[in-house]
């Protein structure tokens, strides 16, 4: 078992490395660097100036080396620029080159400095992650139980009216991406022109202070799309279990329908959606950028 977990973990790290590398390469392509130079330096730089600006800041070196530095497995660059200033990866904030650390990648906790937000990337990531975690925590808390319940109720008697109604609901939710349900929810619940005006449609205020009013809609929007998938999966798993021989055995043993569902079917039916789907779903939910309504 330990070995299995270890292997899984290894694959995960490998995936993360490949992912970041691809993103790194794509953002370090020539046209992107040029754009960077112009936004950072001067929008009216000549091509030559762009060249020197970039090479002074170490952008003109092999991608693999830059990636290594970013990771923190290669020592950070120190370049004496053509303009006489010495720049280095680890020399931010006026550190003396002699005192500076040799390595400063994400492994050393240096996530870089966002030139857009004028803040350490680490801090940005942290606050973003915090907000995301809050939103996703609520989304999971709403989505998982409700979708499992819907799936089990629909799947326990295949073809019944309850099944048909709940299946329709879950199909509709899978057909509603976040940007569509967002529009519909705002129109119905938050629009100032028509609708019920129950909630606050803008989630920007939720950044600072989460209240029921401003947080319900975003949570509902994100939860809804995932809910259909899990519910349909649970239903499929549940209907399959309900036709299994051992359910017939239980029925012919005289077990009541309630107990068949609760004692015999439920555990078997929930294995599949819980193990396969939810794990990847947590990943999905976290990686997907948050959909802010308005």
């Amino acid at each position: 078992m330990g070995l299995f977990v270890l292997r899984r973990f290894g694959v995960m790290i490998l995936t993360a490395l490949c992912l970041t590398f691809v993103v790194f390469v794509l953002t370090n392509l020539e046209p992107n660097l040029e754009k960077l130079a112009k936004t950072q330096g001067n929008a009216r730089m000549s091509d030559e100036q762009v060249e020197t600006w970039l090479s002074n800041r170490g952008y003109h070196r092999p991608v693999a080396v830059k990636y290594g530095e970013w990771l923190g497995v290669l020592p950070g660059y120190v370049i004496e620029g053509t303009d006489g200033e010495t720049r280095g990866r680890c020399l931010r904030g006026g550190v003396d080159p002699a005192d500076a650390a040799r390595f400063c990648g994400i492994l050393q906790g240096d996530w870089g400095f966002s030139t857009v937000f004028k803040e350490d990337v680490w801090k940005i990531v942290l606050t973003r992650l915090g907000q995301t975690a809050k939103l996703m925590g609520w989304v999971m808390a709403v989505m998982v139980p409700s979708s499992l319940i819907i799936g089990v109720l629909a799947g326990m008697r295949e073809g019944s009216k309850l099944d048909r109604s709940l299946s329709t609901v879950s199909i509709v939710t899978t057909a509603t991406p976040e940007y569509v349900s967002g529009v519909i929810f705002i129109t119905v619940f938050a629009s100032s022109a028509v609708g019920l005006k129950w909630f606050n449609g803008s989630a920007t205020s939720a950044m600072e202070d989460i209240t029921f009013l401003n947080f319900t809609l975003p949570v509902m929007t994100v939860a809804l799309y995932g809910m259909g998938y899990i519910a349909r999966m649970t239903r499929a798993s549940m209907t399959e279990v309900m036709t299994a021989q051992y359910i017939r055995t239980a029925r012919l043993k005289g077990v009541s329908f309630r107990n068949i569902v609760l004692k015999h079917a439920l555990r078997n039916a929930l294995i599949a959606p819980l193990t396969t789907q939810l794990i990847s779903d947590i990943g999905y939910v976290f990686l997907n950028p948050r959909i802010r309504i308005s």
Partner: peptide
């Protein structure tokens, strides 16, 4: 069912709750 009439069928593995 189960108390007065009991039934056994083909696939023993499938008839037991895993």
């Amino acid at each position: 069912r189960g108390s007065e009439i009991a039934m056994i069928y083909q696939e023993p593995m499938a008839s037991l709750n895993p």
